Amino acid sequence: MRLVAVNRRRLGLAALAVALCVLAGCGQAPDGVLPGYVEGEFVYVASKLGGRLDVLPAVKGSRIAAGEPLFILEHDYEQKALDMAEADLAQAENTLRDKEKGLRAEEIDQLVASLNRARVIKSLAEIEHSRRENLYASGSVSKEELDKARTEHESSQAWVRELEAKLATGKLPQRIDQIMAARAAVDAARAGVAQARWNLEQKIQAAPVSGLVFDILHYVGEWVAASSPVAVLLPPENVKVRFFVPEALVASVSPGQRILVARDGIPEPVEAVVDYISTQAEYAPPVIFSQGFREKLVFLVEARFAPEAARTMHPGQPVDVRLAGVSQGTPQP
């Protein structure tokens, strides 16, 4: 799990970029051309837990793919906590299995052996009781000897029944309330493992998106506070152009419309697709005042580039936007 904050970071680049354009002599914009600037929506990657920054494979200005290592905080404590939680889970699962299967095999074997011995004694007692009855009928033994044989016979029968009951009970699992308690202990142990693993994952952060490593805010050896961003990423799909359309032209602009974006030093313009048109009119910002724009109502418009074209754009970069003669569709690089 990671903390990712998306910030529409302007850094004053909007005003600065167009101001430089004006100072450079933009003045009156050519017909059909609107001044604008490139903007990025940045992804700030942070950990919910604080710690010392131990590993920083990400390099400022390089590109990174989603899932690649971004930074690692010290995590010895979290690793040991996960190991302990997994050991507790294994113990709880073993206890549950033991309660669900009743007595161990060795204990069952012991009961079976005792039962077999009791059955032999019962057979001998039954034979002796029958013999004593015959002897008593012939007057060869006393009443006391017959009663003793009868008692031993009945006692051996009771012993066999007792051992048979113990064997049947031993093959059953323990009481349902004990099993339910053991299952609850397993669920709690699993939750403990999940929590410990989440804590560890917070210390080992991977890139949540693919894009440019725009900035590094902490370096190896520094203490990073909880929720403090370490790296700033700029995915290509988060790069857009912003420009202001005069009130007289806004009706001719619609979402999905293609526009052409030209940059200094690049002869061929690139395409972008309009995806946002402000519903509120505003006066042209002073920084883009010119003879053609002065004191006119304008509307903010945003358009996005194809990923290939977005990789060549730089936030704050001044551009010229042309609306005329462009159809609708998906942007092409």
Rank of each mutant, 00 (worst) to 15 (best):
R304N: 08
G329F: 05
F243K: 03
A309T: 01
E268F: 12
V213K: 01
S228I: 02
V250K: 10
V319P: 01
V224G: 02
Q280A: 12
V298H: 06
F293Q: 04
G292S: 14
A251S: 14
A284E: 01
L234A: 02
V250G: 04
Q291A: 11
E282H: 02
D320P: 06
P286G: 06
P229G: 02
V270C: 00
H218Q: 12
T312R: 15
P318M: 07
T330L: 15
P331R: 08
A324R: 15
V270N: 00
P229T: 05
L323N: 08
G221W: 06
E237I: 11
F214W: 14
P318R: 03
V213C: 05
A306S: 08
G256N: 06
A248V: 12
D264S: 10
P315C: 10
V213N: 01
R304L: 05
A248L: 13
I259G: 03
V213T: 02
V250S: 04
V250H: 05
A272K: 02
V239C: 13
E302C: 06
A262L: 08
V230S: 04
G292L: 11
V230D: 00
V273R: 15
G329N: 09
Q257W: 07
K296P: 00
A310Y: 00
S327G: 14
V250N: 10
V250E: 07
V213P: 04
I259T: 06
V261T: 07
P235I: 09
A262P: 03
V273D: 11
F244V: 08
P235K: 07
H218I: 06
S227P: 00
F289N: 04
P229Y: 00
V270T: 10
A248F: 09
V241Y: 04
V232C: 07
P255N: 14
V245D: 03
N238L: 14
A284R: 01
V273P: 01
V230Y: 01
F243A: 03
S227W: 04
T330W: 12
A225D: 09
G265W: 02
F243E: 04
T312L: 13
V250I: 15
L300Y: 01
A306H: 08
F299Q: 06
S228D: 09
A248W: 08
L297V: 06
V326K: 15
I216R: 09
R322C: 12
R258I: 11
V239G: 03
L233N: 00
V239F: 10
E247Y: 05
V261L: 10
P315R: 04
E271L: 10
E302R: 14
R263E: 14
K240R: 15
V326T: 15
Y219C: 08
A231D: 07
P331L: 05
A272T: 00
E271T: 11
R311S: 13
V220A: 15
Q328R: 14
P286T: 07
Q328E: 13
I277G: 07
R311F: 05
V230E: 02
V319R: 06
P331A: 08
V301W: 03
N238E: 15
K240E: 15
